[in-house]
Design a protein around this nucleic acid. Structure first.
Lengths: 205, 205
DNA sequence: AAAGATTGTGACCACCCGGTCACTATCTTT
DNA sequence: AAAGATAGTGACCGGGTGGTCACAATCTTT
């Protein structure tokens, strides 16, 4: 965790440092990211950075804490009022998620990158935060009918894999800076609907 | 590509160098991997390594070439005689793939890691080899019936995501060094069958 | 205004990197 | 055996790394 000195900085400065660090980690990943570039980017001295944070790892975990918390808080209010229909429920939840990524591209890339780190830092991240919970997917499909021998576990796995695959594909093929968000959201829903038909037994739209 | 000097080395030495380099890249990824550690591991001098290969990148691409070729050749003979039934066909192909990964764990981790590199080396890899072809998945499902509006493209995407997800899950949960391969293969097929039921309309076993 | 506490700085440290090259050791040809 | 070609070596180079610390600047208390 950051030292008190950092938390007591004025918002603008904190923001600048956080932004620079997120950009660096999002672009290069943990190991290749350079604290030298970070301090140059946000205009503070090396000494200051290491006064605010114990070390590079401390800074990295602070960012994970902050961004994960912010994301969770942005999404939480919507989760309560999801539709009853399974397919609609999944689409609305997933749309909320992808919109957050498009509205927060740097933080989004940071979070995605975090999940594909390697070596020590990956192990430590897992130790601190555990594997990504699949609880939310089980929640989403709680009263669906399934094909074959599939149970809730298999179904939520499949849903998770398809959503992840579709999100990656969508983010790769669509640039939120070029197309208005509204249009992208419509496109996202249309595309996702087709994929959901594949794994959901229910025939209604 | 490696210089002639490397290709003319005796097999044992080539093998030792290749093995050490694969281990390093598989464990750390391209950027963090160290040529110093590689030469120490395989017992040659730094000078020799750079006599055999132009530079680190050259070595890396040589490994990709070699391993990808080997994998393709190991799999090719089987592809021709896949069953006609879609589900059986997918299972048999996918089983062959996962078996190869379990029989060649280092090469397997190297190939998987390769696909999740970042930055320049990732771009260069794509430039050289192109995106991973999804042609094989289209081939596998060529005469399936689909749910809803899904066409061949969506279907092969979904199949690809589910297979990838299941493979990762399976490799994480099963250690080929502890359980005999036969048993693992049986377990793999049983598990995969359930997931395939989710995305395949066909009701037959 | 002076003294003291706090915050900010960047030159500097030891270390590691990929890559080089003058040199040695080995093998081949004469 | 001598001479020449080839293969192998590791100290060394410039450069970048995360992290430190003596000092400078600023703010707070007296």
């Amino acid at each position: 965790m950051p030292k008190n000195t950092f938390l007591e900085l004025d918002e603008a400065k904190k923001e600048k440092i956080t932004e620079a660090a997120l950009n660096e980690f999002a672009a290069y990943g943990y190991e290749i990211s350079s604290t030298n570039r970070i301090v140059k980017e946000c205009g503070i001295s090396k000494g200051s950075l290491f006064q605010y944070f114990e070390n590079k790892e401390d800074l990295y975990f602070y960012l994970i804490d902050t961004v994960a918390k912010e994301m969770a808080e942005d999404m939480k209010p919507d989760i309560g009022k999801l539709p009853k229909n399974i397919k609609e429920r999944i689409i609305e939840y997933s749309l909320r998620e992808i919109s957050w990524y498009m509205e927060n591209p740097v933080k989004g890339r940071f979070m995605i990158g975090m999940a594909s780190e390697r070596g020590d830092i990956y192990k430590k991240t897992i130790e601190r935060y555990g594997e990504k919970s699949s609880g939310i997917y089980e929640e989403l499909i709680k009263d669906a009918k399934f094909n074959g021998k599939a149970g809730t576990n298999e179904m939520s796995d499949a849903l998770q894999w398809v959503l992840k695959g579709y999100n990656e594909k969508f983010l790769k093929e669509n640039d939120p800076d070029k197309t208005p968000l509204r249009k992208l959201e419509k496109k996202y829903v249309t595309g996702l609907s087709t994929y959901l038909d594949i794994i959901l037994q229910t025939g209604d739209s």
